[in-house]
Amino acid sequence: MKINVTQTYLPPQEEYQAYLKKAWENNWLTNRGELVEELEEKLRAYLGVQHMTLTTNGTLPLQIALKTLEIKGEVITTPFSYVASVSSIVWEGCTPVFVDIDPEYWTLDESKIEEAITEKTTAILATHVFGNACHVEAIQSIADKHNLKVIYDGAHCFGVQYKGQSIFNYGDVSTCSFHATKIFHTGEGGAWFTKDQELQDKLFYHHNFGHKGQEAFHGLGINAKMSELQAAMGLAVFDHIIEISEGRKKAVAIYDELLEGRDLQKIKLRAGTSPNYHYYPVVFKSEEELLKVQKALNTENIYPRRYFYPCLEELDYVVANNCSVAQEISKRVMCLPLWESISPIDQQQISKIIEACL
Results as ranks from 00 to 15, higher is better:
T186P: 05
G33C: 12
V86H: 09
H128P: 01
Y279A: 14
V97T: 14
T273S: 02
A251E: 00
C323Q: 05
D239E: 12
Q347N: 10
Y82S: 15
L20W: 07
E328D: 15
L264G: 05
Q230M: 06
P337M: 11
I242Q: 13
G154H: 01
W106Q: 05
G93S: 07
E114W: 05
E41A: 14
Q348P: 00
V90S: 03
Y19A: 01
D239Y: 08
L235G: 06
P281Q: 07
G93V: 15
Y279V: 12
L259D: 02
N276Y: 12
M226S: 10
V160P: 01
D256W: 02
V252D: 00
V150Y: 04
A191T: 03
L199E: 09
G221N: 07
L235W: 13
K149W: 08
G234K: 01
C157Y: 06
Y280H: 09
T127R: 00
L39V: 09
V237N: 08
V282E: 09
T8Y: 00
W91L: 10
G171Q: 10
A356T: 03
L148V: 10
H185E: 10
I353V: 14
H51K: 11
F238W: 11
K145S: 11
N322C: 11
T175H: 01
G159D: 10
T68I: 10
P281L: 04
L220I: 11
E314F: 06
N132M: 09
Q327S: 13
V237I: 13
I76N: 03
E25S: 14
S227W: 02
L290D: 02
C176R: 02
K352V: 00
E114S: 12
F98M: 07
E14S: 13
T121M: 13
C134A: 13
S274L: 08
D109P: 05
K182Q: 10
I242P: 00
T127L: 00
E228Y: 06
S341P: 00
A356S: 15
T127Y: 03
T68M: 08
A45Y: 12
